Simulated scan of single mutants.
Amino acid sequence: MTEWTTDKEKKILWKYRFTLTLRIIRVLAAIGFLYGAYNIILSIAYDQSEKADKNYFSISQAINWTQNGYLVKNEPFLHAEITPFLSQELSLPLVRTIGKKEVQIGLVDVTKRLIAPFSSKNITYTEPSAQSGFTFYLPEDPRTGKKLTLKVDPTVWSTLEKVHEGTVADFAFSTDRYYKPEELLELLSNYDVDVLWMPLYTGELKEIKDVSYSVAGGTYFMVDGLGMTRARETDDYKSYTEIGLHSDGIKENERIMLANMEHLLKSENKTYLENVLGLRFLQERHDYLKENGFKVYGAVVTGPVKELLKLQDLKTIQSAQVGEFAYWNWTGE
């Protein structure tokens, strides 16, 4: 019979520990390999599917409609990832147009999770001044039809007068009445400016009661309204052709906007639409536009500062704001 000794016990324990450690390493390596393979297959499948393009399309539409002249940069190459828990993560550049140039002012980060309430959107501004954006005032109280007036701050025009003519800027104004989009565009066609965005009246305070708004001196402005901007039509999310705000194509722009609203209503969860994309009452707003037509009450435009100064001749303007200035980058058409 072999005599049991402390040395033999240590050897057996060491051998056991070595064997156990080796097994654990093998199991961890197998798990790591399977996890890596899963991530690779998942990423390839995600890249080959239309999910990233679909998510980008939904986010860009929401941002472009709600950000008062700021836009998600229109580009086919974007940063999109899918996590092992099937959350889609997108990072999109936010831009403002000053003259003919798009200037990045921030980043839109969106995480779309399988469970919609846990999805999130965050906008980080690289320029603090861009965070406030523009404000647009309704020309009348929708509930009573009473006209609401607000005088243009004279410093708006004096600021433009003092700026060197070799400068461009973006500029926003509200009107003292509602216009059909083609009417306002026709009015602005006499000036060398580009129209970037127009606030839409979609039944707020009248058909839609529970909306966010503020009152300044008896004048109402919408906090979570929608606006018209360049329109992108797509069936497979691969097309990046857009129609701008021009009088000769505005009816097509309206048609595309209604179609895109319908698409979002059918393809996206209501919680995701409202709480993440910020598209509250999208169904009600779509129905109002479809039944009553498009009415706008202002615009965001851009152009040479001396051309913007000429807009003071428009008696319909009841409030105005100057945005950001940039060196001359304008080409007349």
Rank of each mutant, 00 (worst) to 15 (best):
Q312I: 05
L311H: 09
V322W: 02
Q318D: 05
L311C: 08
G303T: 11
E307S: 14
P304D: 05
F325K: 10
D313I: 08
N292P: 05
K290F: 07
Y327S: 14
F325T: 10
V301A: 07
L308N: 04
T302A: 13
Q321K: 09
P304R: 09
Q312L: 11
Q321E: 09
V300G: 00
G323F: 02
V300T: 00
L311I: 13
G323I: 06
P304I: 04
K306S: 07
Q318M: 15
I317T: 13
L309E: 06
K310G: 09
Y327E: 15
A320T: 06
K295L: 03
F325M: 15
K310E: 15
K310N: 05
Q312S: 12
T302Y: 05
K310D: 11
V322M: 13
L289D: 03
G323N: 11
F294C: 03
G323S: 02
K295E: 09
V301Q: 05
N292R: 15
K315L: 14
G298A: 10
I317H: 05
K315I: 12
G323H: 08
G303Q: 06
Y297G: 03
A326H: 12
E324V: 04
A299P: 01
E307M: 05
F325G: 06
K310C: 07
F294I: 00
Y327H: 07
F325R: 12
W328Q: 14
L309G: 13
G293E: 10
V300S: 03
K315E: 12
V300R: 01
D313T: 11
A299L: 07
I317C: 13
F294N: 00
V322P: 10
E291R: 14
P304F: 04
T316W: 02
V300H: 00
Q312A: 11
K290T: 08
F325Y: 15
Y297K: 06
V296I: 07
N292D: 11
L289R: 02
A320G: 11
K315A: 14
G323L: 09
K306T: 00
K315Y: 15
Q318H: 14
A320N: 10
W328T: 13
A326W: 08
E307T: 12
K306Q: 11
Q312V: 02
F294R: 00
Y327C: 11
T316F: 04
K306W: 00
A326L: 13
K295S: 00
D313A: 14
Y297I: 06
W328R: 14
N292Y: 13
K295V: 00
V301Y: 03
F325C: 13
V305P: 01
W328P: 01
T316A: 15
Q312G: 12
L314Q: 12
G323C: 14
V322D: 12
E307Y: 11
V296G: 00
P304W: 05
W328V: 15
K290E: 05
K295Q: 11
A299T: 04
V305F: 00
G323E: 07
K310Q: 12
K295A: 04
S319F: 04
L311N: 03
P304H: 10
Y297D: 01
T316V: 15
L314A: 13
S319V: 03
E291F: 10
V300Y: 01
Q312F: 08
A320D: 07
F325L: 15
G298W: 02
G293S: 08
Y297F: 00
K306M: 01
L309A: 11
T302D: 08
I317N: 10
